[in-house]
Design a protein around this nucleic acid. Structure first.
Lengths: 136, 136
DNA sequence: GTTATCACTATCCATGAGGTGCCTATATAT
DNA sequence: ATATATAGGCACCTCATGGATAGTGATAAC
């Protein structure tokens, strides 16, 4: 029991350690597009184009890149239909579903607390101005 | 009611929209160091040096930068003691505490699911090799 | 006088995130 | 014959950012 690091140390992994695999996992999750893709797939399978329309502002490259990462890490399953024109569908795996619950909570938090953060930023900006005036 | 986007649309904000303030909030949260700093502060106030020692691999610059962002957005409170040598302490605000619960869950998830992701990556790598051999 | 602590700030540089455009295949529609 | 839809791959380029390093100021210890 390392008293310096005993809060929720799970399964011997410790995300605070740079070399710990869980650190790399956390890093993979720390991406805007990973959040949004996983959230978007939560309700069911979607095609590339459907995702692109839903995730406003994502470029085809970033979408593909993100999906490849999620597929590689076992969060998303990719199914190709050998038809013309091509049809490819993406859906969450069980592991992905599991994560989606958490990420959706983060997304909900972001939406809920916009006013709080707006207010905090306004106050910070005001304090800045105050400092500037105090200097003059 | 936009039937294309009705899952958990909170308070009129929609993180899927690039111009929505909640999108920016999500982007702010999507950072490895934000995760770890908030998690580290969860149990109580810490000084800069204590944080630096706990967050293995963080540079002074990134630590300060992250703390400034969190302070600006009202998640962290900064208290300066006018002594020599300087003493500065950081602690979560109520808003920060609120978020810390979620982020700690994400961190726990990362630690829990390392084996799953390792396995998925190994399988993906094996599939890759399979493709290469099939080509030859 | 030299070194150390502490919490930074400033600066530079390499990496990589992300954007843009062009390319593939084929069936259908015009 | 040409255009469109579809899901990409691939090469190139830019700019932001992460990271490394050095400096700052005041004091106290050696």
């Amino acid at each position: 029991m390392d008293s310096d690091n005993d809060d929720k140390l799970c399964f011997g992994y410790d995300a605070f350690r740079r070399t710990c695999p869980s650190h790399a996992v956390l890093e993979m999750l720390a991406s805007k597009w990973v959040y949004l893709v996983v959230c978007a797939l939560r309700r069911g399978r979607l095609r590339n184009g459907e995702l692109a329309r839903r995730l406003e502002g994502i470029t085809p490259k970033m979408l593909t890149q993100t999906l490849r990462i999620l597929e590689r890490d076992g969060l998303v399953r990719r199914e190709i239909f050998p038809v013309i024109p091509p049809r490819v569908e993406y859906e969450l795996t069980e592991l992905g579903q599991n994560l989606a619950g958490l990420l959706t909570q983060i997304r909900a938090w972001s939406e809920e607390h916009v006013p709080d953060i707006k207010e905090a930023r306004a106050r910070a900006a005001a304090d800045q101005d105050g400092d500037l005036q105090a200097q003059a």
